[in-house]
Amino acid sequence: MLSNAFVLGAGGGFTGGDIIVQLVLFLVLLALLKKFAWGPLMGIMQERENHIAGEIDAAEKSRTEASKYLEEQRELLKEARQEALTLIESAKKQGDDQRSQIILEARQESERLKESAKREIETQKDQAMAALREQVASLSVMIASKVIEKELSVEDQEQLINDYIKEAGDQR
């Protein structure tokens, strides 16, 4: 019977004292959990949340900086392209200017050589004419002295030749 009483007492229900004891034990358990488990767990969770928030902020900051650097690089590339185009245009203009200058100098040199050649031809012509006059003069004197068979002085002969040459030159 004792065993039946034990079973009946165990299954018969809770008494007010049991409920209060269990309630106190439950509250003690909650207090211990809060102090030793829940508090540190919440601290760890808060640290984790702060760490993740920091990582997100750092990633956002890095993304912003990367975007800024990308834009700067694009701007620098654009400036470099513009500068390259400016240099190319400048080089083309300078090449055109040099080409024009070389052509002008070549034309001037050509004209100078042409004028020099004309002067040289004129000088050679004048020298040839002078040499021809001298030969004509001496031949004329020889022929005249033989034809006339008269002796003229050298001075008279030269005077006569010079007059004749002068008249021939005036007639041209």
Rank of each mutant, 00 (worst) to 15 (best):
E111N: 11
L27E: 06
V7S: 00
Q171R: 12
E83T: 13
K34F: 15
S140T: 09
A80N: 08
G39D: 14
L139C: 09
S140K: 05
E47Q: 11
A117T: 10
E167M: 11
F6N: 11
E158P: 09
E149F: 11
E149C: 05
Q124I: 05
I161A: 01
L30K: 11
R112Q: 00
S153V: 00
I165R: 03
R107I: 04
Q46P: 09
A66R: 04
G12N: 01
S62C: 01
L32T: 10
E65V: 11
S100M: 14
Q159R: 12
E109R: 10
L113C: 05
M42L: 03
Q135Y: 11
S90N: 03
A58I: 01
Q171K: 12
L23M: 14
E49R: 03
E122D: 00
V141C: 02
L113P: 05
K92S: 02
L2T: 13
K35C: 02
L104Y: 14
K78W: 03
M45K: 15
E49D: 09
D156C: 00
E151N: 09
T123M: 02
G12P: 03
E79D: 01
L77M: 14
I44V: 15
I143S: 13
I52P: 02
A144P: 08
D126P: 10
A10M: 04
G54H: 06
F26P: 02
L33Y: 15
V7H: 04
A5M: 13
F6M: 12
S90V: 01
R48D: 06
E89N: 12
L139R: 12
L33Q: 13
E105P: 01
E120M: 10
E89I: 08
L87P: 07
A131E: 12
Q101W: 05
V147P: 06
S90Q: 01
D18L: 07
K68D: 11
A128L: 00
A53F: 11
N162T: 10
G13P: 06
T15Q: 11
D18P: 05
R107H: 05
L152A: 08
E60W: 05
D96F: 08
A58T: 02
T123G: 00
P40E: 03
K166V: 10
L113K: 07
L76C: 00
A53G: 02
A66S: 10
E105W: 01
E71S: 09
R112K: 00
E158K: 07
I121A: 00
Y164W: 08
E65H: 00
A80C: 08
R119A: 00
A128S: 02
R112D: 01
L33S: 12
S110I: 11
K92G: 02
Q73L: 15
A130F: 14
L139M: 12
E151I: 05
M42T: 11
